[in-house]
């Protein structure tokens, strides 16, 4: 079908040929979808995003992006590489990896400049994304002087400046304060309303209801154990518990000690 962006068939990947990271993943992602990939640590979520971004390539099986197979030599040609990079942007989990330039302004400009955007247009985009993410005051700052939340927003800005069709987010809210988490969720929801395809790897179940319509659950065998509508997946408590995504815990709440499952969507007394 024409609106299929990514099609993965029996994708297997291992690091150094001996540490399996993905063991037979099948997945189809369509334009404009809002998808979350959830799973405990080390289940292959980040690896999947890097495969979708054409940074690594499967050992077995294949990934098709925009109707063309993603192969190791398919990005050797600069035009082909740029065509793909303009359409897919990855926000890395560790913002320090993504922010490698000496100033925030240059980090935001890096992507568009590599993709051949004229400097005047790059300047315009810097101002625009800085306003959207409320980071105008950070433009001349050095990335290592920023807080984690600021770094994360700048990392998103560096991808937003490319204006891709597909956003890949790797743990976008990990370690952030509630207000920054809120800003990032709002950004993702807004981008999706504008027609962008959103794929988010996370194990923060509290945000999934807002940032995803479809959820894929990865298990310890580095396979998709379940995929489906967000609400349906999140209601399957045994599935989430079996995959280390919810836990039973005891805490002090409303003046009394009680024990319950920690669930993402349901309020509790």
């Amino acid at each position: 079908m024409n609106d299929i962006i990514f099609d993965l068939k029996n994708v297997q990947f291992s690091y150094l040929g001996k540490f399996p990271a993905l063991c037979g993943v099948d997945m189809t992602i369509r334009s404009g979808e809002k998808i979350a990939v959830i799973g405990a640590n080390g289940t292959g979520k980040s690896t999947l995003l890097q495969l979708l971004d054409g940074l690594i390539f499967p050992d077995h099986g294949h990934v098709t992006a925009f109707g063309e197979k993603l192969l190791e030599n398919s990005h050797v040609d600069e035009k082909t590489a740029h065509r793909f990079r303009k359409r897919v942007g990855l926000v890395f989990q560790n913002a320090d990896i993504q922010l490698f330039c000496p100033s925030v302004r240059e980090d935001i400009a890096f992507g568009p400049l590599q993709l051949g955007v004229a400097e005047e247009e790059v300047d315009r985009r810097i101002q625009e994304v800085a306003q959207v993410l409320d980071i105008q005051h950070l433009l001349e700052r050095v990335p290592h002087q920023l807080s984690i939340g600021e770094k994360r927003r700048v990392a998103i800005a560096s991808v937003l400046a490319i204006d891709p069709d597909v956003y890949l987010f790797d743990e976008p809210t990990a370690g952030l304060d509630p207000l920054t988490v809120r800003h990032i969720i709002d950004f993702i929801v807004h981008a999706n309303r504008l027609g962008k395809t959103i794929i988010t790897a996370t194990h923060d179940l509290h945000i999934i209801g807002e940032i995803a319509d479809t959820v894929y659950v990865f298990d310890r065998n580095k396979r998709i154990v379940r995929g489906g509508a967000t609400q349906t997946v999140l209601n399957d408590r045994s599935l989430l518990e079996a995959n280390n995504l919810i836990h039973i815990h005891q805490h002090h709440h409303n003046g009394k000690e009680h024990v319950h499952q920690h669930l993402p969507l349901e309020p509790h007394d």
């Binding site: 971004d53 940074l55 990005h75 600069e78 590489a81 740029h82 990079r85 303009k86 942007g89 990855l90 890395f92 990896i97 993504q98 490698f100 302004r105 240059e106 400009a109 890096f110 992507g111 400049l113 590599q114 993709l115 051949g116 400097e119 790059v122 560096s158 991808v159 490319i162």
Partner: peptide, 14 residues
Amino acid sequence: AMLSRGYTGEPRLL
């Protein structure tokens, strides 16, 4: 991260 944002070996900078 550089490749992901379009770097192909010849950097273009502000």
